[in-house]
């Protein structure tokens, strides 16, 4: 498998002394499902946003699909961003618009300015949107306003909006942090299926260690802006996890044994 994403020696500091990321190095192969875990404030979200330059890294290089992301101009960057779908903890939908309108927002990067302003979409695009929404089980909510949906449904709209971009990579910033266990499972199952059957690479920030272990091919552990673990989910040990979370007394709420079985 070819390498889709390469993060080379990336550092980010806010102001002069707040260091969010230091010398981050990793690569992601095509079709891989990678989870980034670590304590709150470790720099997971910053790392994710550095990949599509929603936040500009202070130094380092990122190669995505043979493009050096940090050498692109504005127009080229937008073209690269079309190939990277993004999913957020708070869904980030436009509440007053319908499910299908929100989904079609994912196509804006492919449109002329005027078509985007007027919200003109071709029949093909609408059909594709409806198709994706059907896969995600939202075909009955097409014209519902998105603020009438439950959290899990909103997140599925978020996924639909990312998928309609025809992305090569999905960046998910804590997609299940605001959801109940049931909706969380639905969302994670969808993400896993997207990776397995559509061949889209998925990088997920997670707080739930057991979920990360169960769903991902590889785990990257981040603590205080540094990578402290990078390996398959089979090889991770209890002491690795304690190292990632830096817990002083060795007591955490998680269950390693169960997740390996499932």
């Amino acid at each position: 498998m070819t390498t889709l994403l390469e993060v080379k020696n990336v550092s980010k500091h806010f102001g002069n002394d707040t260091k969010a990321l230091s010398n981050i190095d990793f690569s992601v192969k095509e079709g891989e499902f990678v989870s980034i875990i670590g304590p709150s404030g470790a720099g997971k979200s910053t790392l994710l946003r550095c990949i599509n330059r929603m936040i500009d890294a202070s130094s380092g290089d990122i190669i995505f699909d043979n493009d050096h992301v940090y050498e692109l101009n504005k127009r080229e960057l937008k073209k690269v961003r079309r190939k990277i779908g993004m999913i957020f903890q708070h869904y980030n939908l436009v509440n007053r618009l319908s499910v299908i309108e929100n989904t079609l927002h994912g196509r804006l990067g492919y449109k002329s300015t005027l078509a985007g302003i007027l919200g003109l979409h071709s029949e093909d695009e609408k059909l594709q949107a409806a198709n994706i929404l059907q896969i995600l089980g939202l075909e009955d909510q097409l014209y519902k306003r998105s603020d009438e949906l439950s959290g899990g449904q909103k997140q599925r709209v978020g996924i639909a909006r990312a998928l309609i971009q025809n992305p090569k990579l999905l960046l998910c910033d804590e997609p299940i942090a605001s959801l109940d266990p049931n909706s969380s499972k639905v969302i994670m199952d969808h993400l896993r299926n997207i990776c397995t059957s559509m061949g889209i690479t998925v990088v997920v920030n997670l707080h739930q260690v057991d979920v990360a272990l169960k769903y991902s091919d590889r785990i990257i552990g981040v603590n205080s802006g540094k990578i402290v673990f990078n390996g398959t989910s089979q090889n991770i040990t209890s002491s690795d996890i304690h190292q990632i979370y830096g817990s002083d007394e060795g007591k955490l709420i998680f269950d390693l044994g169960g997740s390996h079985v499932g």
């Binding site: 599509n52 929603m54 937008k78 073209k79 690269v80 961003r81 079309r82 990277i84 779908g85 993004m86 957020f88 708070h90 869904y91 980030n92 939908l93 436009v94 509440n95 007053r96 618009l97 927002h105 994912g106 804006l108 990067g109 492919y110 449109k111 300015t113 985007g116 302003i117 007027l118 919200g119 978020g158 909006r161 990312a162 971009q165 960046l171």
Partner: peptide, 28 residues
Amino acid sequence: DKGAIEALQASGANWWQIVFQVVIPSSI
């Protein structure tokens, strides 16, 4: 909500598109 603006920026939409698809519908 700045999240929706961020989401569209991340998908490669330009300023005018974001204004007319997010900002104005949200504040109409």
